[in-house]
Design a protein around this nucleic acid. Sequence first.
RNA 1: GCCCGGGUGGCGGAAUUGGUAGACGCCAGGGACUUAAAAUCCCUUGCUCCUCGUGGGUGUGCCGGUUCGAGUCCGGCCCCGGGCACCA
Length: 835
Amino acid sequence: MALGKYEPEKVENKWQDIWNRERAFEVEVDRTRPKYYVLEMFPYPSGKIHMGHVRNYSIGDVVARYKRMRGFNVMHPMGWDAFGLPAENAAIKNNTHPAAWTYQNIAEMRAQLKRMGYSYDWRRELATCRPEYYRWEQLFFLRFFEKGLVYRKKAPVNWCPSCHTVLANEQVEDGLCWRCDSTVEQRELAQWFLRITDYADELLAFLDKMPGWPERVLTMQRNWIGRSVGAHIDFPIEGSKESITVFTTRPDTLYGATFMSLAPEHPLIETLTAGRPEAAAVREFATRIAGMDRIKRAADDLEKEGVFTGAYCVNPLTGARMPIYAANFVLMGYGTGAVMAVPAHDQRDFEFATKYKLPVKVVITPEGETLKVEDLTAAFTDPGLLTDSGPFTGTPSEEAKAAIIEHLVDKGLGKKAVNYRLRDWNISRQRFWGAPIPIVYCETCGAVPVKPEDLPVTLPEDAQLPADGRSPLPGLESFTKVACPVCGKQARRETDTMDTFVESSWYFLRYACRDKTDGPLDAEALAYWLPVDQYIGGIEHAILHLLYSRFFVKALRDEGWHKLDEPFHNLLTQGMVLKDGTKMSKSKGNVVDPASMIARFGADAVRLFILFASPPEKDLDWSDAGIEGAYRFLNRLWRLVEEFVSGLGPVCAPVAPCAEPGSLALSAKAKELRRKEHDTVRRVSRDIETSFQFNTVIAAVMELVNDLYLTKDSLRETEDGRFVLSSALSSALCVLSPVTPHICEELWGALGQAGRLVDQPWPAHSEAALSTDEALVVVQVNGKVRGRMTAPTGASTETLQALALAAPNVGSHVEGKTVVKVIVIPDKLVNIVVR
RNA sequence: GCCCGGGUGGCGGAAUUGGUAGACGCCAGGGACUUAAAAUCCCUUGCUCCUCGUGGGUGUGCCGGUUCGAGUCCGGCCCCGGGCACCA
């Protein structure tokens, strides 16, 4: 049989058709088999797939195909994160509807993914913009509303003037919109929030039980949640019944609090200054600071600045009068927006006190030292012993924290408190192309939830999008005019839609429930398939998507939808695909289009290169020479099989991977190739299993192929040689098949092997086949390599020592010196130490 | 500033528990085949010195340490990437 020329497109189309026809990757719940859920982050359907997708999905596909061969019931789904702003912009530009643009892109990208030969169960495909999907999200919203997990409040929110919408805190990076890099403004708006902070403790605690996630991501989530333990302490305001509550992590320094700093936005500022001569200056200051943009206000070189309000409060323990300041460095969004200032032990307070000549009082000293106020050049922030602190003087500061809180509790002046950096998740978006929030505003009944039986609230399909980018929904009477679900009077529908991160917070659950049409989730299917065993995606979602999803899963669990605590057991964050050392971008003109590479070299070569060039976690620099090398290797493999089947065909029946030779006696050369074959299987299995190091997996197979080239001409002469050649070739195809499935499947068939390669079990190497009669032993003198020798495997220390001393080139380094000692590592190394 | 990663040939990258540094690929050079070229197959390839060998020296960011032996372990630096950052 002649194979002819390697034509990737032909081979790849053929096998994709066959897998499709034979439903090779469609799976169902099967409790008799262990399951494995491999998931890659689903793409936004922007038009075409890019190299980042190719990398992400190729990694996932190797895992899926490998686990399949290992006997797992593998679920490997794909879908579309289909709501989002680009669809609106494109619709405006092309005078079409976002849905039309989105569905067209999905069709194009689906075809591209199919062209890559990924082993998806396409029946599970979903698009989040379909009412069949988002209707369930609206149902979740109603349940959360009922429970109080979603609420509406007027709050200062992040506004992107270019996207015409608000953003969650997680979506603001350095004061800029994560999507368009515009400077984010602060606006006061009524918005819907999800109480993610209710889960802050659990979200944090579970991070310690997630060894399958990269440490980096865990750290980023810990930082983002930002739990700190301290106290709320009340400071009575002089001449008022009210008091100011502060949050502090340093209750031990309370005796040193000498003034009070409030955020310029603090609600008490107005009342404190009312009728005072300072009022005008304070208002002017507060307005100026509040009006500053985020970046400027957060800059590290921003000078501390403040104004005296004219009012005083009282230190609850010392009774000292503390002037109340409005200060630019105090944030309304953290703690209570009020800070007890302890200038001796907080650097910011120290700088502020120095600038405004406020009193400084030392209350903590390093052990065995005294600290004088006049000697301080910076705040002393380390732990130490309390001084000048009434009954607590002499107590170690760490102990004093609890003791002082206890004291405050007794007197009703404060309590222990935990504070988080994490804020509730603002999910309202003033956009059109998103899931409508199922709420109706009635003049008499207020914000009323839509009745569950009236779901879904669907997006109008005939909406014309205004050219200025604003949502058309508020102006669409057909959408907004609705009867109040409670009183029936005319009311107005909510026109905000949900953040698209809500859709991506549960899509991985829905994949497992594709048959469920009368509800969002099928608890039994979830119990079998979830959690996701291996999740793969970009590090850019370390906080956003990965934190929201964790929260959403917990919230759904507590609503009784399933019993899962965490959605993603193992997480792999793959690196970026670069070109010439930088991110690919249209403006730099360095974009490599996967489609053109597939057309030139085929999907297998693209998969091979992208997996070979770098380990998955690292960034990968696209190289045109590299992909040619990958293509060259596939041709080399092809020709090897071609030569094998045309030259040895009649005399050599196909042999299974890692076949046992039985009574067949193997020559030394045949044994050597067999050893290489088994070692390759061993290395490939280990590298996939322990670390997904596909680059070394491929290198190992390349080595085996190189060896096959070097030995084939002599081994083909004998029966044992042909046997070993056939086995080795089968093994090579078998273990390479998750990486380049099409060519391997074709060559497997060409060898005359029965069945589909895709259904083969993963080969198992035999330890016996790895053993050798002779070992290469390195001879060192004083740690430097001076020679190499072969010695019988298992040779004794004495034998190796003698052989080493007699080895060529060793004598001259030992001659005239005293051998002090000899270190022998059996079968490996002899180190002769001389003086 | 704090917290994570990471520094290995011309390049991408390998190196189980400390045991031959540079696997595999790219690039480059040489040979075979060919009328020729392409393709292919084979070989060489860290740097350096010489007497060209089974040779010597040197080499994994820098300095030091532990060890018979360090890319790997320890201490101290330098550089690069990422995250967080007036968070009270």
